[in-house]
C-alpha cells in the first residue's frame, strides 16, 4: 500500500509548493525561498539522473559486444568515444575545484578539440539534413487529395511562390499575402492550439497531482 501512496503523496506535496508560492507571499518571503530551494535541488537531482542513462548505455553496448551481435564493432567505438570524452569532461569539471588543479585545466584542449572537430560538425550536419527532408516531405505531402489537403497545399504555394523572385515580379502582392497568412490564419490556429493545449496540460497536471494519472510511476491506473 505504502509503495503506492507515498509517491502519490510526495508528488502532490511537491506540486503544492510552486502553486502556492506563485499566488501568495509569506512573511520573510519564506515561500519563495522554499520554492527556489526545491528547484535548486531538483536541478541537482536531474544531474544525478544522467548517470542512469550512462549505465544503460554501458549495459546495452557491453552486452552487444560480448554477444558479438550485429553492430558490435560500432558499440566499441561508441563506448570508447564515451569514455574518452567523458574523461576529458570530468577533468575539465574537477579542475575548477580548489585543490584539484592537478587533474587538468579548465577548457582543456582535448575537450575543446573533440567538441570543435567532431561534436559540432556532427551536430550541425545532422541538423542540416532537414533541408533535404523538407524538400521530399513537401513534395509528397502537398497534394490536393481533398479539401483539407487542398487548403494545406494552397497556403504552402502562396508562401513558396512569394519567395520566388521571378514569380514576385509578375505577382508583386505575394510577399504581402504570405505575411498576411502568417500573421492572420496561421497566428489564429496557433493561438487556438496554444490555449487548448494549455488547458489540456492543466487538466493533466491536476490528474497527476491528485494521483489519478500515474502510469509514469509504473502504477496501475485508477484509484
Amino acid at each position: 500500500m505504502l509503495k503506492k501512496k507515498i509517491p502519490v503523496l510526495l508528488c502532490f506535496l511537491a506540486g503544492l509548493l510552486p502553486i502556492i508560492s506563485f499566488f501568495f507571499t509569506s512573511p520573510g518571503d519564506g515561500l519563495r525561498e522554499a520554492n527556489d530551494t526545491l528547484e535548486q535541488w531538483l536541478v541537482v537531482v536531474s544531474g544525478f539522473a544522467l548517470l542512469l542513462g550512462v549505465i544503460s548505455v554501458f549495459q546495452v553496448n557491453l552486452r552487444k559486444i560480448s554477444n558479438r551481435s550485429k553492430g558490435w564493432v560500432n558499440a566499441i567505438y561508441l563506448l570508447a568515444s564515451l569514455v574518452i570524452m567523458g574523461a576529458f569532461g570530468l577533468m575539465d569539471a574537477f579542475s575548477e575545484m580548489p585543490g584539484w588543479g592537478w587533474v587538468g585545466t579548465s577548457g582543456n584542449t582535448g575537450f575543446n578539440w573533440i567538441f570543435d572537430a567532431i561534436f559540432q560538425p556532427l551536430q550541425s550536419t545532422m541538423f542540416s539534413l532537414l533541408a533535404f527532408y523538407v524538400a521530399s516531405a513537401a513534395f509528397r505531402a502537398f497534394r490536393a487529395r481533398n479539401l483539407e489537403a487542398g487548403l494545406l497545399l494552397a497556403a504552402a504555394m502562396v508562401v513558396m511562390l512569394g519567395i520566388n523572385p521571378y514569380v514576385v515580379k509578375v505577382l508583386p502582392f505575394l510577399p504581402e499575402w504570405t505575411r498576411w497568412i502568417m500573421n492572420g490564419p496561421n497566428a489564429a490556429a496557433q493561438r487556438g492550439i496554444i490555449i487548448g493545449a494549455a488547458l489540456g496540460a492543466a487538466s493533466m497536471t491536476l490528474r497527476i497531482l491528485l494521483g489519478i494519472e500515474r502510469s509514469w510511476l509504473g502504477l496501475q491506473e485508477g484509484e
Binding site: I193, A197, R207
Partner: peptide, 9 residues
C-alpha cells in the same frame, strides 16, 4: 494535435 494528446490517456 495539442490538446488531443492530453486527452489521450
Amino acid at each position: 494535435i495539442g490538446e488531443e494528446l492530453y486527452a489521450a490517456s
